[in-house]
């Protein structure tokens, strides 16, 4: 992938990563490394560490909350889960994303 494509992808990731994190938490709570690995496997996160400032902001915005839970394999882990506001924000994004994505696809296909 050339550098201009990388730059585009970086900008697109920045715009949607917040909601991808919320989407990862839709089914069940998850801890930091688990979330980072899931997003990295989906190629949405190139540097796992950049997830943590984002999680801090999401918590400050009240979209996620964290609780400590005992772990069988080590020290307690901080688990993140969606709040009511987080569920609402994710639903609003999902509702907006599909038509937006269709519009972008349509205009790209129309462009010669």
């Amino acid at each position: 992938m050339d550098s201009s494509a990388d730059a585009v992808l970086t900008q697109l990731r920045k715009g949607v990563l917040e909601y991808c994190v919320l989407a990862c938490l839709r089914q069940r709570p998850a801890y930091g490394l688990e979330l980072a690995s899931q997003l990295a496997d989906a190629r949405l996160l190139t540097s796992e560490g950049t997830l943590y400032p984002l999680l801090s902001r999401l918590r400050k915005q009240g979209l996620v909350e964290s609780t400590w839970q005992e772990s069988t394999s080590g020290p307690p882990r901080r688990y993140y889960q969606l709040t009511g506001d987080g569920i609402t924000a994710l639903a609003a994004f999902a509702e907006t994303w599909r038509p937006f994505s269709d519009d972008v696809s349509a205009i790209l296909e129309d462009t010669p």
């Binding site: 930091g32 490394l33 980072a36 943590y52 999680l55 801090s56």
Partner: peptide, 19 residues
């Protein structure tokens, strides 16, 4: 707040990844 949270979370990440 982001600095404190991020440092703590990265430490937890490393603890888990190297556990």
């Amino acid at each position: 707040q982001e600095r404190v949270d991020t440092l703590a979370s990265v430490r937890e990440h490393l603890t888990d990844a190297l556990a």
